[in-house]
Design a protein around this nucleic acid. Structure first.
Lengths: 215, 215, 215, 215
DNA sequence: TATGAATGAGAGTTCATTCAT
DNA sequence: GATGAATGAACTCTCATTCAT
């Protein structure tokens, strides 16, 4: 309806709910289920009906929680990204040797499919795809990338300081290179390319890291 | 080394309509336009109506040409993949020095956005996404990856033979590592991550290649 | 989806179809049926499902014809308005005496409910309501009012010229006053107010017209 | 003469919750806000959410106060109708001359948009629309019409008795005619028809009243 | 060979309403 | 008395696809 009289009542296009949305204890549970569906079907093909069926929560309740489909998808990605970061941080914190820590971080990624984080790689590919076209996704993905880069850079700096790594290794540079290798080597894994089986992928990745870091 | 196989996974009996039903200039023209739309909107969001509007070809004619939506999308990807390979092969053939050739191949990729191939990276991300869930796409993407790997391996082998590269460089291994770096470094580019601007991406990539190849 | 890259393809928000819409022989038939539903239920309460059921045309076909619900409603009003005008013009053209013609035009309106034009008054009330808030409806209603005013003014001018009406009757003024009386006296009719039965309404209307026009 | 009857048509057994469930200041406040929304958006488009937002009262509290949506709308109309009547009665009571009083009553209506009663005309059009299809609304509207008619008839009778008006003016007839003119001339005003600006509308109205009443 | 007309399936979204607190 | 949480029902709209020409 094209209003002729744009008056005081039309003020805001109703941003109404935002960000935090409704609380709800089930919210987290729903997100975990949503991640499964997204990983399985892809984000574009993820319907309210799918998430509803898998999580057992009625469609209208999902909308009540998340507002709309896009926001549900984004919330699911945020949830998964945080979960993965928490996981890798915990795994890394347990190791003292920087070289082992770097390997752990990267290997964690390579092994994602089989470990705690189901569909982590699939979610990443979805995120890359959406981030190209949606500002909110892009912000989220870039921030997450920065976290991973920071995690790697910190470890590299530790190793340089302790003399475990080459003195000329620039933490920022190496972190960027390592992250690129991680992302790039992840592709054949997620595609299950028989030319690059997971074990080989891991070994090729470590080899590059060694050339970048070890004396 | 570069295997095009893995076709055993294909569920569909592959009706052998390779190369598309119709040939002719119009068909190619439509595919070029379709690539633009896919790059812009994403494959999932690409409707017959979009391609029709951009190409000026009626919807039902598109269907007459390509069958259904998925087949149109796949045809578009095939078209783009072939176009890109042709482009990079031509660019590489003009260079004698293997090191320059390797750099050219990789830099070509990094510079995609600004060069002849519009939306090449966007199409790649789409392809990765679909290849995870669709056997036909997967076959196509793996085959294409194999082509790129072959191209790189060949160049590496040349360089090793001519002594330009380290004698211990294994063409197959290095090709896999280089391709991973290329794909991985492409992500910040396509996402326009301010933390990794194109020039830096290119330099980081070359640096890794140098460590892998140069004596 | 909030696009980050607003590029060439997004050009138009797709006005796609407009005005004339699809042809279709059934279009007119559908509109007649739609008028019945609107008169019965009111425009706001008129759903695609209602018009579909009454007309026997599938919902998606209605949308194919008219684009969306609002445009269907507007098309229905246009159709009815034209039909009513045609009817009253034909009825008036058959009469020579301006006074009889004025009475006929007004009486036609008062008698609407029972005559050829079903729900004409109900449609008018709907139109008034929508015209307050929708620019397109407003334009339509004002134009239609102008037609009625013109019809009355013309007749008044005739009567003044022929000496049948008072010489000091200003066609434009009287037309406006007559139209107001017609609209105002129509309300108790459409509401079936027992305090103003149709016959009384008609007589009260003619009385005012006589005072305005007759010598 | 002014009948409030016609209640025999009421389908519902009328649960006698006249005057609303809750009284108190808050309830009145909500109704005033609801009138604004109805005038702005139209009754059909008035949602609980709108009234809630404008009045600051939670949706479920609105429902607690008024039951369901239709009852809220009707209560709002009742509130507005009473408010308008009170206003015009007060304005008229201050005048002695019947002719001035008649003019005041009618001019009050014509000038509604700018005076104390916001959206009064818009609410009337809404009421007409609903009264056609809902027995409760119809009763309400007819009763209100009767009040206005009574107010006018009374004034006319005064003027006849005092000799200010023509001796042959029948209060009941003239009241009906005047009310019709008022309603009819209100339409171009509420639609802001440039062909009948408010000042002209008022003058045309007074002219007709003069012909009906003045000697 | 090419295309307009027509239609069914499916999805998102809105909104009143019920329920528990 | 008052309010947040949750949910089912209904509706519009998009889109691929089929059919007839």
């Amino acid at each position: 309806m094209s209003d002729t009289s744009a008056s005081s009542l039309d003020s805001a296009p109703a941003p109404v709910r935002r960000a935090g949305r409704r609380s709800g204890r089930k919210r987290e549970d729903v997100l975990a289920h949503a991640c499964l569906v997204i990983g399985e079907r892809g984000a574009d093909a993820t319907r309210f009906a799918d998430v509803s069926e898998v999580s057992g929560v009625p469609i209208s309740t999902l909308q009540y929680y998340f507002g709309n489909r896009e926001d549900l998808l984004l919330a699911a990605f945020r949830y998964a990204a945080q979960r993965d970061l928490d996981g890798v941080r915990a795994a890394a914190a347990a190791l003292d040797d920087p070289w082992e820590r770097v390997q752990k971080v990267c290997a964690f990624v390579v092994g994602f499919a089989d470990e705690a984080a189901p569909y982590a790689w699939q979610l990443w590919v979805e995120a890359w795809r959406w981030a190209q076209r949606d500002a909110e996704w892009r912000t989220e993905v870039l921030a997450d990338n920065a976290e991973w880069r920071g995690l790697l850079a910190e470890t590299v700096a530790d190793g340089v300081a302790s003399g475990r790594f080459r003195a000329d290794a620039d933490p920022g540079r190496v972190a960027r290179q390592a992250l690129a290798m991680v992302d790039g080597i992840g592709l054949p894994i997620v595609l299950e390319d028989p030319a690059v089986p997971p074990e080989m992928a891991r070994e090729l990745l470590i080899d590059v890291l060694a050339r970048l870091l070890l004396p």
